[in-house]
Simulated assay, not measured.
Amino acid sequence: MNMKRLRIRLSCLLLLFAGVSLFSFTRAQAPLTIEQALDIAEENNPDLRAAKYNLERYQYNLVAQRASLKSRFSLDLTPINYSRSRRFDERLSQWYTNETLTTSGTFMVSQPILLTDGEVSLINTFGWQDNQSTVEGMDNRNRAFSNDLYLRFNQPVFTYNRRKMELQQIEFDYENAGIRYALQRLNTERSITNQFYSVYMAQSNLSISKEELANTEQSFEIIRNKVEADLSAREELYQAELNLANAQS
C-alpha cells in the first residue's frame, strides 16, 4: 500500500515537472514584440540604466536643494543645569555659597531668501532659574522666568549669490541628465528597431527562398516528366537540375 502511494506521488511530481517545463519552454519560444524588447532593454542595458540612475540622482538633488529653501524650525533645550560655587570674600572675611538650578531652551524659525542669499530668523529664548545664596547662615533665594524674543537678519555682502547659483547648477544638471537619458533611450530604440527589421528581412528572404525552391522543384518535376516522355530535350533537364541545386544551396 505504501509503495503504491509512493508511486502515485512520484507520478504526480513528474507530471507537474513536465507541465512546468513545457510552460517555460513555450514562453521561451514565444516571439517578442518591439515594446517587450524595449522593456527588457531598459531593465538590462547598462548604459540606459546608468543614464536613468543619473537622472534620478539629479532629480533627488534638485528636490533636496528646493527643500532647503523652505522654513526651518529648530528647538534647543537644556532641561537641567545645576551649579554650586563656594567662594571666600576677603573684604568681609566671609564664605559665600551660591547654588543655581536653571532650565532653558531656544526656539528658532529661519527662512532663507533666494533673491539675496540672506536669511531672516525669529528667535525666542526662554528659561526658568532658581538661585539660592548663603552668607553667614542667611539664605537668599530667587526664582524667576525669563523670555527673550528677537528678529535676526543675516545678509552676506561683497559676494555672489551662492544659494541661487547652486540651485541653477543643479537644475542645469538635471536637465542635461534628462536629455542624455532621452538620447540613450532613442539610441536603444533605434538599435532594437534595426535588429527587428533585420530579422523581418531575414524571415522575408527565407519565405521567398522557400517559395522559389518549391517552384523550382515543381518545374524540375515537370521538365523531368517531359524528358522521360521524350517531349523535351535532355539539356533542359540538366538546366533544371542546375537551377534546383542553386535553389537548394
Rank of each mutant, 00 (worst) to 15 (best):
107 F>K: 04
140 N>H: 04
159 T>L: 10
117 D>G: 06
221 E>D: 14
112 P>L: 00
170 I>E: 01
25 F>D: 14
125 T>D: 05
176 N>I: 13
65 Q>H: 05
229 A>F: 05
150 Y>G: 01
62 L>C: 02
121 S>V: 03
15 L>S: 14
120 V>K: 08
4 K>L: 14
221 E>K: 12
91 R>Q: 06
154 N>A: 14
73 F>Y: 11
235 E>R: 10
119 E>R: 04
82 Y>S: 00
151 L>A: 07
55 L>R: 10
181 Y>W: 13
12 C>D: 14
235 E>G: 07
243 N>V: 10
172 F>E: 11
87 R>V: 02
231 L>S: 07
105 G>P: 05
248 Q>V: 01
197 Y>N: 15
106 T>I: 02
91 R>F: 07
120 V>W: 12
184 Q>L: 15
3 M>G: 11
163 R>Q: 13
242 L>S: 15
74 S>L: 09
1 M>G: 12
138 M>G: 09
132 Q>A: 00
136 E>Q: 13
40 I>Q: 13
60 Y>K: 12
72 R>D: 07
57 R>I: 03
158 F>Q: 03
6 L>Q: 11
68 S>W: 06
123 I>M: 04
110 S>E: 05
212 E>P: 08
79 P>N: 06
26 T>G: 13
161 N>L: 06
128 W>K: 10
170 I>M: 01
138 M>E: 12
47 D>W: 14
171 E>D: 06
129 Q>C: 01
179 I>Q: 06
164 K>W: 02
160 Y>T: 15
221 E>T: 12
238 Y>A: 08
196 F>E: 01
243 N>K: 14
18 A>Y: 09
150 Y>W: 02
152 R>C: 07
44 N>D: 09
210 K>N: 13
194 N>C: 08
178 G>Q: 10
161 N>M: 04
137 G>W: 03
105 G>S: 03
116 T>W: 03
170 I>Q: 00
47 D>T: 15
129 Q>S: 10
67 A>Y: 10
246 N>S: 12
245 A>I: 12
125 T>H: 06
114 L>D: 01
92 L>P: 02
93 S>P: 06
187 N>T: 13
71 S>G: 07
180 R>F: 11
179 I>S: 06
28 A>D: 12
106 T>F: 00
168 Q>G: 03
9 R>M: 15
13 L>M: 09
49 R>V: 07
191 S>K: 09
70 K>V: 07
219 S>D: 11
144 A>C: 00
145 F>D: 00
180 R>W: 07
187 N>W: 08
170 I>G: 00
